[in-house]
Every structure is written in structure tokens, then in C-alpha cells.
Amino acid sequence: MSEEFEIKNKVAASGLINFDLSTLLPKGERKGIDLKDFLFMEMVLKEKDFREKVAAINLEEYKDAYIYVYNSADAIVPLWAYFLITAKLTDTAKKIVYGSAENLEMILMHEAVRDYDFSEMNGKRVLVKGCSDKSIPENAYVELVEKLSPVVKSLMFGEACSNVPILKN
């Protein structure tokens, strides 16, 4: 093929780094523990019963899982109840948080962005992928911009064919 009609990938030749935030999502099963299941009549925490139910937790069910602990009952649960559940699962689970599945994902992504080595992007043009088949918490994008702003030459959001310029240094 002659050079006159050669197809060139201008995006690849531009030195643009395409970054997909979804690649930072930790892999593993997510599981919720609802404290209402540990309460007497789903309403009252009786310490002896609660401790027995916590002791009976099958640790294999939570091995290497990401766990969120919440309370869907309209009951007041003392803070030490969360301590007991967490103490039981700490050596088994990858991560335990208080809150919803969404809270768990936000914390996992926070840690992933915080711990990622972005040094390869120093002084480079970076395009953050805009579409993903995985759900990414919006806060992860905010934290990513915060992390990249001081080091990249330019930052864009979207796709190579259609992007939004965010900043230039």
C-alpha cells in the first residue's frame, strides 16, 4: 500500500493516554449484612442473643468478600454491635464498611484512586474514558481530577473522537 493511502491511527500516534477508571474497581464479591437479622423480633438488640448470632456467622460465606453492614430496621443499635460484627469478619473479609452498597463502592474507589501510581501520566495528555459498562461512583471522577490536575499536561473526558477538555497545564 502506498504511503499516500496508508491508514494511520492518529490517536495512537498522538501520545494520548486513555485511562479507564473502571480498571481500578476491585474485583470480588460484595455482600451486605443487615443488623435487623440479628435483632429480637427485628426491633430490639438483646446482647446475649446478638452475641450468639454473631458467633454463629459462617465465615466461609464472607471469605475475601467486600462487606457493607447496615441496619434496615427502625431500631436503635448501639455502636458496639458494629464492633462485634467487624471483629468477627476482619480476618476473613477484604473490606468491611458501615453503610450501603453505594457507600462501599465509593470507599473502594476512593482507596483505589488514592493508592494508584499515576507517575506514568506525568506531563502527558490524558483522556479519561467517559463510558463504562460498570457503575463508577461520581466521587471517583472528582478524586481522579484532583489527583491528576497537578501532574498532567492536559486532561480530557469522553472518547478520543468526542471529548471535553478539562484542563491544560
Rank of each mutant, 00 (worst) to 15 (best):
L89I: 09
K129Y: 01
D20F: 07
N169Y: 08
L25M: 14
N71K: 04
D64M: 00
E6N: 06
A93G: 01
S100N: 07
I67A: 00
V97I: 14
I7M: 01
V69L: 14
F40G: 00
E120C: 02
S72K: 12
Y141I: 09
D37G: 09
L84M: 15
N169F: 08
V11R: 09
A140C: 07
D117T: 01
S100C: 09
K36V: 11
S119Q: 00
E138C: 10
P165N: 10
L148K: 06
I33K: 06
V69M: 07
N9I: 02
S119K: 03
Y141K: 10
D91P: 01
G123T: 01
A73I: 08
V54N: 11
Y68L: 02
T90F: 09
V44E: 11
L167C: 10
C161M: 14
L45P: 11
D133E: 13
E111Q: 13
P150K: 02
S14P: 05
F40K: 14
K10W: 14
I136A: 03
E4L: 03
N169R: 15
D74C: 11
S72Q: 09
R51W: 05
M106N: 09
L59S: 07
V142F: 10
G15E: 00
F118K: 09
V77A: 00
M41Q: 15
K124H: 04
L25Y: 06
K46T: 05
G15A: 01
L45A: 04
E146Q: 15
V164Q: 14
K27W: 05
M121A: 06
A56N: 14
A13M: 10
L108C: 05
E52Y: 10
N169P: 03
E143W: 13
I136T: 10
A13Y: 08
R51S: 13
M106Y: 05
S149F: 13
K63H: 01
W80G: 02
E29I: 13
V113F: 04
L39W: 02
L155Y: 04
K88E: 04
Y116K: 11
G28V: 04
R125L: 09
A75F: 01
V152E: 01
P137S: 00
A13H: 07
V77L: 00
V54G: 13
T92L: 00
A160E: 09
E6D: 04
M1F: 09
D115S: 10
